[in-house]
Design a protein around this nucleic acid. Structure first.
Length: 352
DNA sequence: GAGCCGTGGGT
DNA sequence: TACCCAAGGCT
C-alpha cells in the first residue's frame, strides 16, 4: 500500500463513518474560518461533548470575529467559565482583536501565518489552514499522533518522536481534500484507533498498519510516566449581602484561573495569604461540614467552605478587585468550576 | 524541555 | 477508587 491509497481509504471511511459535529460543514464549499478557529481553540485538550455547548453559545452571542473582538474580556472569560484552560479564552479574545483591528477582519490563510497569532500553535495552525482554506497541511493532535505512531510502528517515545510522526503525517495529506483528511485522521483516532482496546477489525488501515502487523500497535505511542499529583488545601468564603448579592473577587490575569472571578479564598495557590489566622474583613463565619474536593491538572485541592454568619449591610463598601454580584444571576457570574462547586456546597448547607 | 494550565467522562 | 485521557499552547 502506498500513501495515496491509504489516504483514499481513510477518506472513504470518513465519508461513511465520520462524526457529525456542530462545527463541521460537510458538503459546504468552504467553512467559515471564524467558526473553524473558534471550534479548534475550544477543542484543545477538550472533549467534543464539552466544547459543543460552548461553541453554540459563543456563536450565538458573537457571530463574527469582529463581534468577539468588540466584547469585553470579562464577558468572554465569563462565557468560557467551566470549560477550563482559561488562557485559551484570553488568547481567543486577543486573537480576535488582532484579526479584526490589524488584519482587516480576515484570518491568515497559511499555517505559518496563523501560527503567529495568540493561542494558535502547530496543531491549530495546521487544522485551520487545512479545514478552512484547503491548504495541504497536516493537523497532528494526540489522536493523529497515536494513529501515525501505530501505522508506522514508530517505537521512539513522545515527545522525542513528534518530528518523525509529523513528517509521516504530512506525507499522507492528499492535495485534494486536506481538511477532510485532517478530520478523518482525528476521527479514526477517536473512534477506532483508541488508546486502549483499538478496534483494528473495523480499521480502514488494518492492512497497512505496521504496528498491528508487529503486534505492538496497542502499546504505541510510548509515553513518559506521569508524575504524582500533590495535595493542597485552602479556605473559601461565601459572603452575602442583605439583598442577597455575593461578594466576589477578580483574580490576577496571569497564572491559575487567570482573570477569572472567584469567591474570596486563601491558602491554596501562590497568592498572598491574608487570612491565615484571621477571617476576611474580620467577619464571623460558619463552616460547611463537607469540604470541596477538586482536581486540577497538576494538583488536587481540598477546600474548606465558610458561610458568613450575618449578611453584610447594604452599605458595606469594597474596593477592586472585590465586587458584589447579584444573587439571582449567579449562573452568569463566570465562576470557574472549582468555585461553582464551593458556592453550591455553601448554598446546600444554607438550606438545611 | 519540562512545568504550568481545568474539567469531565470513561474504565 | 484511582487513573487515564482529551482536536495543545505558552514560558
Amino acid at each position: 500500500m502506498n500513501t495515496a491509497s491509504m489516504s483514499a481509504a481513510l477518506l472513504a471511511w470518513y465519508d461513511g463513518n465520520g462524526r457529525d459535529l456542530p462545527w463541521r460543514a460537510r458538503g459546504e464549499a468552504r467553512p467559515d474560518p471564524y467558526r473553524v478557529w473558534l471550534s479548534e481553540i475550544m477543542l484543545q485538550q477538550t472533549t467534543t461533548a464539552a466544547a459543543g455547548r460552548y461553541y453554540t453559545a459563543f456563536l450565538g452571542r458573537w457571530p463574527t470575529v469582529a463581534a468577539l473582538a468588540a466584547a469585553r474580556r470579562e464577558d468572554v472569560l465569563a462565557a468560557w467559565a467551566g470549560l477550563g484552560y482559561y488562557a485559551r479564552a484570553r488568547n481567543l479574545h486577543a486573537c480576535a482583536k488582532v484579526v479584526t483591528e490589524e488584519l482587516g477582519g480576515r484570518f491568515p490563510r497559511t499555517a505559518a501565518q496563523l501560527r503567529k497569532l495568540p493561542g494558535i500553535g502547530p496543531y491549530t495552525a495546521g487544522a485551520i489552514a487545512a479545514i478552512a482554506f484547503g491548504a495541504r497541511e497536516a493537523a497532528v493532535d494526540a489522536n493523529a499522533e497515536r494513529v501515525i505512531a501505530r501505522a508506522f510502528a514508530i517505537t521512539e517515545g513522545l515527545p522525542k518522536a513528534k518530528r518523525a510522526i509529523a513528517e509521516a503525517a504530512q506525507s499522507l495529506v492528499p492535495a485534494g481534500r486536506p481538511g477532510d483528511f485532517a478530520q478523518a485522521l482525528i476521527d479514526l483516532g477517536a473512534m477506532i484507533c483508541t488508546p486502549k482496546n483499538p478496534g483494528c477489525a473495523a480499521c480502514p488501515w488494518a492492512r497497512d498498519c505496521a504496528g498491528l502487523r508487529l503486534g505492538i500497535a496497542h502499546n504505541l505511542p510510548k509515553k513518559a510516566a506521569k508524575k504524582p499529583r500533590p495535595e493542597r488545601r485552602g479556605d473559601v468564603y461565601v459572603m452575602t449581602r442583605e439583598d442577597g448579592a455575593v461578594l466576589l473577587r477578580r483574580r490576577p490575569v496571569k497564572g491559575l484561573l487567570g482573570g477569572m472571578a472567584e469567591l474570596p479564598s486563601c491558602g491554596w495557590d501562590k497568592a498572598p495569604r491574608p487570612w491565615d489566622s484571621d477571617t476576611p474583613f474580620g467577619l464571623s463565619f460558619t463552616p460547611v461540614k463537607e469540604p470541596v474536593r477538586h482536581v486540577f491538572t497538576h494538583f488536587s485541592l481540598t477546600l474548606r467552605v465558610w458561610r458568613i454568619t450575618e449578611p453584610l449591610p447594604l452599605d458595606f463598601a469594597v474596593d477592586a478587585p472585590y465586587f458584589f454580584h447579584p444573587a439571582a444571576r449567579m449562573d452568569e457570574a463566570g465562576l470557574p468550576g472549582v468555585m461553582q462547586k464551593a458556592f453550591a456546597a455553601a448554598m446546600e448547607a444554607g438550606e438545611t
